[in-house]
């Protein structure tokens, strides 16, 4: 982290890789194999990035990191509970659409997908177009649409579910 604070990108990447493992283990130890472990890990990494100037090199790194990881885990847990209490099957990963497409390349009706996306509510359409058609990151979409990253993820979830329905599939996840 000391090197990362000086702008050493290699050291920072190594640190983030290490922290990914630690954060994943941290969440699994406390909550088991919940489906949103990666969400919590990514939120933790983003928080570490945003707060990296607050770590005092003269103090131990562990308490600083665990405070962030713990806080992010609780926030994601609350969010997931809130979303689950209102919706059915919101744990669809944004990548699933891409995975499905890759698995069945011959079955894709591109025009139908574009038509279905165009039929989505404006916010969902903008988010999905950004994530899938323009290959933007969640952060980039959030910045462009002036939304939080969490809101982008939730909107994407809803959009994917609506797309499934529009394309003739079930709106429930397996």
């Amino acid at each position: 982290m000391r090197l990362a604070q000086t702008g050493d990108q290699g050291a920072y990447a190594s640190l983030l890789v290490l922290l990914t493992r630690v954060a994943r283990q941290f969440v699994r130890q406390r909550l088991g194999a919940v489906p949103w472990v990666d969400d919590a890990v990514q939120e933790t990494l983003l928080a570490v990035h945003g707060a990296r100037h607050t770590w005092d090199p003269s103090r131990p790194f562990g308490p600083w990191f665990h405070a962030i990881a713990s806080n992010r885990m609780i926030d994601v847990l609350r969010r997931e509970r809130r979303v689950r209490s209102r919706e059915v099957g919101t744990d669809l990963e944004p990548e699933v659409a891409g995975v499905a497409a890759a698995a069945e390349p011959d079955d894709i009706d591109v025009e139908a997908i574009h038509a279905a996306v165009a039929a989505l509510p404006a916010r969902q359409r903008q988010v999905i177009e950004g994530l899938k058609f323009q290959d933007q990151s969640v952060r980039e979409v959030a910045g462009r649409l002036n939304m939080s990253e969490s809101a982008v993820k939730v909107t994407a979830h809803r959009g994917y579910r609506a797309l499934r329905k529009l394309l003739g599939g079930s709106d429930r996840e397996d």
């Binding site: 990362a4 604070q5 000086t6 702008g7 050493d8 990108q9 290699g10 920072y12 990447a13 983030l16 890789v17 990914t20 990666d38 890990v41 990514q42 990494l45 983003l46 990035h49 990296r52 100037h53 607050t54 770590w55 005092d56 090199p57 944004p94 990548e95 990151s137 969640v138 952060r139």
Partner: peptide, 19 residues
């Protein structure tokens, strides 16, 4: 977004910061 991509993205943004 995959975690690996996020790490690459964040590392690229690692400008020097004053503690």
């Amino acid at each position: 977004m995959k975690t690996d991509d996020l790490i690459v993205d964040l590392a690229r943004q690692a400008t020097p910061v004053t503690p």
